[in-house]
Design a protein around this nucleic acid. Structure first.
Length: 492
RNA sequence: GGCCUCAUCGUCUAAUGGUUAGGACAUUGCCCUUUCAAGGCGAAAAUACGGGUUCAAUUCCCGUUGGGGCUACCA
């Protein structure tokens, strides 16, 4: 049987990093088995559906390198479309399907109409809580006579449809992550499956869709563990095979509560905007709750597809630790070629107005590589690199090396300028400069730092910066000499 | 409150009966070095607690404590 997995988010805002991990694991399982991965949109709650939500989910997944084989897609025109032959994959377009299956449950006696008002439900809950009883629907309408139901229906009373949970026995299932989990049926609520507005609740829609769309694995967050017995019961009522189920441990805030927006960014797009590379994000998120058991930290998508196993997924929640993400991002930035770095950082450079279409590509590659080992996110690039484009104003005092003196700088810099002027433009590259200047420094009996520190500071205008030779190469001979003269001016 | 669930360094985790409890991030020391990074070599840092089972428990069982999730006509 072909493995079929799905990611089934609600378009209630933005793709959450926890959702990204869930989608990733489902994707990995599908891909490593040569199966299909689908994106289903669960928009059965009209009130919570946000415009642009679907768009954001698809784009965020695509940014991370996860593209569904089936389900919601974005076409070249930027319009949302659907691909695959098991659709529609958007639940609000499947309403007639759900009502048909709801009717089937009703006919089989596995569901019943409930006319209880929200007020009554609330007072029942209040009573239960005050008396420390298990909370839940008291099954008030479960045994209503058919005449009673008919008269209420005729009277136009608003109603919902509830599933009948067995009142005895247990529901047991094998979770791919947690192993065997058992629930007492009597404690499981008679869940509403069709709301007053005729829309199904998640519970009905999920079971119907997962069966009809032939998914072999249900991979979702642990917040669904408690409602799983309802889903299993529904599968049984329909006479359908229950798919494999995996509940992934939750992603946590630093204080170990469920990851929330209050304590930092949780939207995938936030990280994209900040200049995290998708490869870093995927690697990081994959390792939150899963580990290959080796000491290798860096895994590409291909390697993840190969190595991922549910047996190695942890049971406990993991703190979403940004410092580790930073490290991953640094690693991936460092592994980029200068050419690739230019490519991926272009949006930030353009936004900062540092480059335009006329900027020399080769030069830009060299310039960017100045900072490759020094940044943790691409968004830091414009600021880190600003000095290359425009010499910042600085205090002349910083030109003096700690082991040197103002007099020495005043002595060295003019001589250095004279020497640099003798170097041809053809030889103006960092290797040659380093060799030639090194020799010159020795010959003149200067300390390395006495020459290199003021040279570097004059070129960067900063106490901390990349090395002088590489900056000099990027700046070119003319600009280099010009900046040294500016430094000289600051010493008077 | 009820139900479910989880528990190894600060964080992410490895080790399932016998290890000096390993790695990574972060912290920190040293080296390299004109500075900052990067890199190299070190250091400190954990089996929540209490009972069992066993020759031997991080590992198996029970309990305690603590955390988390669910407890909606939201997903």
């Amino acid at each position: 049987m072909t493995v079929r997995t799905r990611f089934a988010p609600s378009p209630t805002g933005f793709l959450h990093v926890g959702g990204l991990r869930t989608a990733l694991y489902a994707y990995l399982i599908a891909k490593q088995n040569g199966g299909k991965f689908a994106l289903r949109i669960e928009d059965t709650d009209q009130k919570r559906t946000v415009e642009g939500g679907v768009d954001n989910i698809i784009r965020s997944l695509a940014w991370a390198g996860i593209v569904a084989d089936e389900g919601a897609h974005i076409d070249e025109q930027g319009k949302i479309m659907q691909v695959g032959d098991k659709g529609p994959y958007i639940q609000s377009e499947r309403l007639d399907i759900y009502s048909k299956y709801a009717q089937e449950l009703l006919d089989k006696g596995f569901a019943y109409y409930c006319f209880c008002t929200p007020e009554r439900l609330e007072s029942v809950r209040d009573y239960q809580q005050k008396n420390k009883l298990p909370t839940g629907y008291d099954r008030h309408c479960r045994d209503l006579g058919s005449d009673e139901v008919k008269s209420k229906m005729d009277a136009g009373e608003t109603h919902v449809l509830r599933m009948k949970m067995p009142t005895e026995g247990t529901t047991v299932f094998q979770d791919l992550v947690h192993g065997e989990v058992t629930f007492k049926n009597e404690l499981v609520d008679d869940q509403v499956i069709l709301k007053t507005d005729g829309f199904p609740t998640y519970h009905l829609a999920m079971v119907v869709d997962d069966h009809l769309m032939e998914f072999t694995h249900v991979i979702r967050g642990e917040e669904w563990l408690s409602s799983t017995p309802k889903h299993i019961q529904l599968f049984k009522y329909f006479g359908w095979e229950v798919p494999q189920i995996a509940h992934l441990p939750l992603l946590l805030n630093a204080d170990k509560s469920k990851l929330s927006k209050r304590q930092g960014d949780v939207a995938v797009e936030d990280y994209a905007k900040k200049g995290y590379l998708p490869e870093a994000m995927i690697n990081f998120v994959a390792f939150l709750g899963w580990n290959p058991g080796t000491e290798q930290e860096l895994y590409s998508m291909e390697q993840l597809i190969k190595e991922f196993k549910f047996e190695k997924v942890n049971k406990s929640g993991s703190v979403f630790n940004l410092e580790k993400l930073d490290w991953y991002n640094q690693q991936y930035i460092r592994s980029l070629s200068c050419e690739e770095l230019v490519k991926v950082s272009m949006p930030w450079l353009l936004e900062a107005g540092l480059v335009n279409e006329n900027t020399d590509r080769n030069w830009l590659e060299k310039a960017l590589c100045l900072e490759k080992d020094r940044i943790t996110t691409l968004a830091q690039l414009p600021e880190a690199l600003g000095f290359v484009f425009k010499l910042p104003d600085y205090d002349g005092q910083i030109l003096v090396w700690k082991k040197s003196s103002l007099e020495e700088v005043k002595n060295i810099l003019p001589k250095l300028t004279d020497y640099l002027n003798t170097i041809s433009v053809q030889e103006w590259n960092k290797e040659k400069l380093q060799a030639m200047l090194g020799e010159w420094t020795v010959q003149n009996g200067f300390a390395n730092g006495a020459v290199l520190w003021p040279l570097r500071v004059s070129l960067s205008g900063q106490q901390n910066s990349p090395g002088p030779f590489e900056i000099a190469e990027v700046l070119g001979k003319e600009e280099t000499v010009k900046r040294i003269n500016i430094a000289l001016g600051k010493l008077k």
